[in-house]
Design a protein around this nucleic acid. Structure first.
Lengths: 335, 335
DNA sequence: CTGTTAGCGCGTTCAA
DNA sequence: TTGAACGCGCTAACAG
């Protein structure tokens, strides 16, 4: 039960007041001589020595309570097990760390109830800001978040009905690049594989697809949890129709359908050309390698984090945050 | 600046004492009639109504300060952007959630300094328990963790010099399975691709490799951050030597080397047989599909979480945790 | 210049 | 059902 060392223990051991320990621990003293409170070097050293010896760690609950700051961010994603979100999570955590923040992560698995629970739970943990990936039906959670007045930045998707801060990829442009590429590769009967979820990243890509190829161009819609049967059905239909170009709208369904086609002996990149969306290792193992749209994940994370820090600073200095709703749009590139 | 609603606001609005609000909010009242404190249904309803209306959220800093509990876990991994750790992270988060916990995540990127910083930072945040993936050189961080007396469970790797709780895969057995498979597939000149890092998951696999194939069987050691040149060098040597079987010791180097071989026109699974370690999508795109060792990730996460919860409970009820050092060993399977 | 006293933040919980 | 102490660290005000 190793009782935790408190500031009081240090004070007693060092024979000084509690306040002085606090000052020393917070470096409110020293160097530039401009500090309000001064302590002799000797006392300071003694206090630090005792703190080190007793392995003192300030209780952050007490500190948060007093300062109203937790230095914790909340990040709500779809699924960290997906390399796309896992990568974003990693970059976000890195940014947060660099700025002295620590990060609570949560996965919605595209369940709006779960989104709501996570928002609630993170609010109660008093995170200073959020980076969130909303999901279909997450309106309630988003409104709760907005009502909380806490800084947040939306990434990867957004609901056009909400005028909120977000960092987003120009998906329409990205899809045009994808279609341009697949047409250059000679495909003429082009279809698209997408998720059934009605989220902006999918619908923007689909709208762009239809704009280029007309309203009758076909899109396969797969559920968030893709079964082998789902992928098989797509493959069968693609083969039957003689589709010669398939544009993927996301990582996971892309690999699932590729697998189904491969198993059926379809010669990928010969019988049918593929262009992917988001990186997958498998794209390297075809001849020629499968082209894909690459979203700038490090930049998405970086911009989102910077944006969030800006909001947090503003709020800290008493400025009104509710009017800041800048939209950051990043371009994807074809690889 | 939407001032946060406190218990005091509720009390005033509902015309009752602060204490009563607290009782109601904590459900210390009601149902089974055995509670210590009872409140009339009407009062209870009124309080709850006011709380809802004002969107009251208890300040968890205050609560933690009082109860000494945060309901937060700390998870330190190597790299969430790697599907292996991302998947584990996801399952851990799910387990934590189910038990009312929230999770702080951190990535070491195999940097022991970073490991140390994360331990320190999470301790200060007063996490109730840790799940950690140590890295080469993380001794200082591990000792700090042990000295803290806080419950923790090590996963994925462990330092045999430390007698601590861990959940681990039987890597020796797994490697034997891999070698058995590749030999059955006809390979006779077998080599291995591994990381240069001296961590138990790698060394156990390597030791097992040597036990089966003798001390002279060759192992390629790649740095944690693999460049294309690194992978190319391995591919060149494999080709030159006429190696006809390659056992992979991990996900990332496996794909890197496969890519280098593929680019050089090596007919994978014909000229050379491959057996992987940990899942990758790419294994499906060869004929026959590449076999691989699958670690039971959901079970690793589940066992680690359960173990940790057990430790936390024990500590909470004043039991001595320092004597609990059970090792949980899980079997991997060949797929 | 060096240091201390005392009240605060917010929810929990015991004594009354 | 309530008053009040408490957990721990911060910091304004004050003293030698």
């Amino acid at each position: 039960m190793a009782k935790n060392i408190t500031i009081k223990d240090i004070a007693k051991e060092a024979g000084v007041s509690i306040a002085l320990v606090s000052f020393v621990m917070n470096n409110r003293i020293g160097a530039d001589g401009k500090q309000k409170y001064r302590v002799s070097e000797a006392t300071k050293e003694r206090i630090l020595e005792v703190a080190r010896r007793l392995d003192y760690r300030p209780n952050s609950a007490a500190r948060s309570l007093r300062q109203g700051r937790t230095h914790v961010l909340g990040v709500i994603l779809s699924d960290m097990g997906n390399i796309f979100y896992g990568t974003i999570a990693h970059y976000l955590e890195k940014m947060a760390n660099k700025h002295g923040y620590t990060v609570l992560f949560g996965n919605t698995e595209e369940d709006p109830e779960q989104f709501n629970r996570l928002v609630q739970s993170f609010l109660e943990k008093d995170v200073e800001g959020f980076v969130v990936v909303p999901c279909q039906g997450s309106q309630a959670g988003m409104e709760r978040l907005m009502a909380s007045g806490r800084p947040f930045v939306v990434i990867d998707r957004h609901n056009p009905n909400y005028d909120v801060p977000y960092v987003y990829t120009d998906n329409a442009d990205a899809m045009r690049q994808a279609l341009h590429a697949i047409q250059e590769q000679g495909a003429t009967k082009i279809e698209m594989v997408s998720y059934a979820m009605r989220i902006s990243s999918m619908t923007d890509r689909e709208d762009s697809f239809h704009e280029v190829l007309g309203p009758d161009a076909h899109i396969y819609h797969l559920p968030f949890t893709i079964t082998e049967a789902d992928a098989d059905a797509v493959a069968e239909e693609v083969i039957r129709k003689g589709t010669d170009g398939l544009v993927m709208s996301s990582n996971v369904p892309s690999v699932a359908v590729l697998k189904a086609l491969f198993r059926r002996g379809v010669r990928i990149q010969e019988d049918i050309r593929i262009v992917g969306f988001d990186y997958s290792n498998v794209y390297n193992f075809f001849n020629p390698p499968i082209s894909y749209i690459l979203q700038p994940l490090p930049e998405i994370a970086e911009q989102a984090a910077k944006y969030l820090f800006r909001l947090i600073e503003m709020r800290e200095s008493g400025e009104d945050i509710s009017t800041v709703k800048d939209k950051i749009i990043l371009k994807a590139t074809l690889k």
